[in-house]
Computed example of a mutant assay.
Amino acid sequence: MVYIMKMSVDGACRNNGYSNATAAAACVIHKKWGRWETWSRRLPSSPRPTNQAAEITAIIIALEKAIDKSNEMSFCPFMKVYITTDSKYAHGCMTMWRDKWVDNGWVNAAGRDVANRDLIERALELEAEIEEHGDVRYEWVPRGENTHADEVANRQLDDTDRASYADSSSSDDGW
């Protein structure tokens, strides 16, 4: 038996490149009959979050959810996991560049250390676990075809912004 999981992922970062950057990652699992399930995660503030880190983190969430689903099943079907992303960077990391980077000792074509190596290695570990009894495929889609995952990631950032504002605007000055 084959169990198929289709997921869309996206990452979002506000103030990307600045010290006050905030980022979140999201995964939308497409279910039967047009239903879906969403998962999101805020990235920690250290190291400084970036959009690229958020995109890879979204892939990690998807792979974790696929493993969770596999562990929940009373039988062990062959899994086919399809992950769509609108990030050419994340797609390239997981399809085209990874083997070259490993062969080059995690140095990129410009001779620099590969950015987000820790996240990419984590994604590769999770992918390898799935591939013990399944298959993982990545597909790049235009941004307009990935709106649901984008909305979930941005909603996570909105919730974080509201919580931060509430924390900073409350005071205990005895009134």
Rank of each mutant, 00 (worst) to 15 (best):
H133I: 08
A54K: 00
E121I: 06
N16P: 03
C13I: 00
R143K: 10
I60L: 00
D150C: 12
E37Q: 11
S40T: 12
K31F: 00
D159G: 08
T22Y: 05
G17I: 12
K100W: 08
W175S: 12
L63G: 04
T147E: 14
W33T: 14
P47F: 14
A163H: 03
A90I: 02
M5K: 09
K31I: 00
V114N: 11
I59A: 01
K80A: 12
G11F: 01
I130R: 03
H91V: 03
W175A: 10
D135T: 07
R122A: 07
N16M: 04
E121S: 06
V114I: 07
A110F: 13
V136C: 01
E55K: 01
Q52T: 00
L126W: 08
T160Y: 14
P47G: 09
C27F: 03
V81Y: 07
C13D: 01
E127D: 06
G174D: 02
K80Y: 12
V107Q: 15
E129Q: 13
A153N: 02
A153I: 08
N16K: 04
A123V: 01
M94R: 04
I4G: 03
A23R: 03
L63H: 06
A115N: 10
I83C: 07
Y89E: 05
A25C: 03
P47L: 12
R117M: 13
F75D: 12
D68K: 11
V2F: 08
S45D: 13
N146Q: 04
N51Y: 05
T160K: 13
V9S: 02
Y89T: 02
S46F: 11
G134A: 08
G17L: 05
I61V: 10
P47E: 08
A25K: 00
G134I: 03
G11A: 06
K31W: 00
R48M: 15
E125R: 13
Y165W: 12
A128G: 14
A115L: 14
M5T: 03
G34P: 01
W97G: 06
R162W: 15
R155N: 15
M1A: 06
I130E: 02
